[in-house]
C-alpha cells in the first residue's frame, strides 16, 4: 500500500479508536441533532426547513473546528511532528491526510442526518440531492482548511479553544443555523458575514432546497472556495514542525488574512 493509503487508514481508524475524536465526530453532532429533532421541531415547526442543512453544518463544524485543530496542536506539542520529519513525512501529508480523514467522518454524519431527518422528524426534503452532496463536500473543504489553519497558528491547546470558540458559538447563534438569517437584525447580519457557517447555510438553502436566501448562493460558494484555498495555502506556509523551534516562515498573525474573502463578501453585499 502507498504511504498515503497507510497514513489515511490510520487517521481514519483514529476517529473511531480515540474517545475524544469519537465524541466530536459522532456523539456530539448526532446527539445535538436528535435533541433538535425531538425538541426544536416541536417548539418551532418552521425549523423543519433548516434541520438538515443546519445539522450538517453543525456536524462538520464540530469535528473540523473543535476537534481537528486540537489534534494538530497536541501532535506538535507531543513531538510527533519531529518523528514525522525525521522519517520523511511531508507537511502536506501531516495536514491534509487527517483533514481528509475527519472529512470522511463528517460525510458519514452528514449522510446519517440527511437520510434520517425526513422520516424521523418530518424535515424539509432537499429538492436537489446532488447539490446537497456537492455543497456538503465544499463545506467539509472550507471548515477542514479553517480548522487546519487554527491548528497551525495556535501555540497551545488553550489558543485553539479561543480561536475555535470565536467561530463556533457565533456560528450557532448568528450563522442562520438556529434562526433564519432573514430574521436576524441587520447589524448582526453584517457580522454574520464573517462566519463561514452563514455562507454554508445560504448555499444549502439556495441550491439544495431552492429557498430564497439573503446572500446570493453563488457568492456563498465563491467565499467558501476562496476561504478554503486561502486557508490551505496559509496553513502550509505557516506550518511549524516543533513548538520549541525558532524557525518559522511567517508570523502566525498572517493567519488573519483568512478574513479577506469574508470582508470582501460583506462589502460586496453592502455596496455591490
Amino acid at each position: 500500500m502507498s504511504a498515503f493509503t497507510n497514513h489515511f487508514l490510520f487517521e481514519f481508524k483514529t476517529g473511531i479508536r480515540n474517545s475524544s475524536a469519537m465524541l466530536m465526530l459522532y456523539m456530539l453532532p448526532l446527539g445535538f441533532y436528535a435533541a433538535m429533532g425531538f425538541i426544536m421541531v416541536e417548539i418551532n415547526p418552521a425549523f423543519k426547513d433548516l434541520l438538515i442543512p443546519a445539522m450538517i453544518v453543525f456536524a462538520i463544524m464540530s469535528s473540523m473546528i473543535l476537534g481537528f485543530p486540537t489534534g494538530l496542536v497536541e501532535a506538535r506539542e507531543g513531538g510527533i511532528y519531529r518523528s514525522y520529519k525525521i522519517n520523511s513525512i511531508p507537511p502536506i501529508s501531516i495536514l491534509v491526510i487527517p483533514a481528509i480523514s475527519v472529512g470522511f467522518h463528517g460525510l458519514i454524519t452528514s449522510a446519517i442526518v440527511a437520510v434520517t431527518a425526513v422520516p424521523l422528524f418530518d424535515a424539509a426534503e432537499p429538492v436537489n440531492w446532488l447539490a446537497l452532496f456537492l455543497i456538503t463536500l465544499l463545506v467539509v473543504f472550507t471548515f477542514s482548511t479553517l480548522g487546519m489553519l487554527i491548528g497551525v497558528v495556535s501555540s497551545s491547546s488553550r489558543a485553539v479553544v479561543l480561536w475555535s470558540q470565536l467561530i463556533y458559538l457565533p456560528s450557532i447563534l448568528l450563522g442562520g443555523m438556529m434562526i433564519p438569517l432573514v430574521l436576524i437584525p441587520e447589524t448582526f447580519q453584517k457580522f454574520s458575514g464573517l462566519l463561514p457557517s452563514t455562507y454554508a447555510m445560504q448555499a444549502f438553502l439556495g441550491y439544495a432546497f431552492q429557498q430564497p436566501t439573503v446572500i446570493e448562493p453563488w457568492i456563498a460558494i465563491a467565499v467558501m472556495v476562496t476561504s478554503g484555498i486561502l486557508a490551505l495555502a496559509l496553513s502550509i506556509l505557516l506550518f511549524n514542525w516543533d513548538s520549541r523551534n525558532d524557525s518559522r516562515r511567517g508570523s502566525p498573525l498572517m493567519g488573519l488574512l483568512i478574513l479577506v474573502p469574508y470582508v470582501l463578501a460583506i462589502l460586496y453585499t453592502t455596496f455591490g
Binding site: F10, G78, G79
Partner: peptide, 10 residues
C-alpha cells in the same frame, strides 16, 4: 530522538 513520540492510537 530524545524527546519525540508517536500518536497514542497508532
Amino acid at each position: 530522538l530524545q524527546t519525540s513520540g508517536l500518536p497514542d492510537n497508532m
